[in-house]
Amino acid sequence: MAEMVSRPYERAFEKHALANPDVLCLSADLTSSCEIDKFRDDHPDQFLSLGMAEQNMMSFAGGLGLAGYRPFIHTFGVFTYRRPYDQLMASIAYPRRKVRIMGFLPGITTPGGMTHQAIEDISVMRSMPNMTILETGDATEVESICEAADSIDGPVYCRVLRGSMPRLFDTPIVVGQMRELSLGSDILIVTAGISTEEAMRATKALEGVGVSVRHLHLNTIKPFDAAAMLDHINSVKGGVITLENHVTEGGIGSLMAEIMADNGVGKKLKRLGLNDTYAHGGSRAYLMRYYGLDALALTQGIEDLMGERLGITEKDLAEARVDAVHSLAKAEGL
């Protein structure tokens, strides 16, 4: 069972910001929700409260970039691009300001419903020239997200996990490098963020019924090295399947579709995620089941892809749990 780590962002941000005086901590009235309340209290000189005014914050951050600072924006992911899309584009992305956008509660990791769930952020950011996209899938990635983001010569959007989370990896994020979690030869599974843990559970069960899985975890979604991915696609006999905490359009499923089509790969691709739907409020485990974003949905998707029943049940997957803690904890409050 994986080690559970509590609030890794809090420590990681503090460490990084203290080592880099040009890093500034910006907050939009969600300071404790983004685990920077201690930083605000301990390092007020490096902290800027911008209130619940995201449009201003985005352009303001662009101005800080012009002044040579590297602002880290903290709020829920949705509030960094839905309302202030124009500001994000004109003040940050176009001029390539070194603004580090820390988008918390990606996808259905919040019980706050439609207005709080960033389900199309990757799609939006992928279509935004100059934007880099990183996503965290475990405690180690959250611990290394600040350094990784701050190494980018331009703006970067990060999907950041908060609270208690498993440690799945033991090496920090290397921007542009995907993680090869298993190197089988039947099916290629590509995941990012919280979907990776689900796929790791599914992999155990799949191996148990004789399916050889190749599983890749992405922490860098844009820019993307298609050549390395192509090798993996060509290394499996069967098809490719993606599972993402995001709508199926414009995210990593689309990314794979583009790579495969661009290179004339004649293989099947199955994209799992929110299928042209908004989500609603509820616990993470419930929403993952309801919208088909969990390990069971993945094994069923693989059955479809392979055209055969594998007989994997919820019980088999429960036994392959990577952790047993956080999925039971119902997020209360925001």
Binding site: M52, V78, F79, R82, R83, P111, G112, G113, M114, T115, H116, H280, G281, G282, S283, Y286, Y290, K330, E332, G333, L334
Partner: peptide
């Protein structure tokens, strides 16, 4: 309230009792 599968959501959704339009993104 805030139970999985219920319409009585913690952050009132448009389908929650008494809510007429989706708010929650303030302003």
């Amino acid at each position: 309230f805030n139970k999985d599968g219920s319409s009585v959501e913690m952050i009132g959704a448009e389908h929650s009792p008494g809510m007429e339009v989706h708010n929650g993104t303030l302003g």
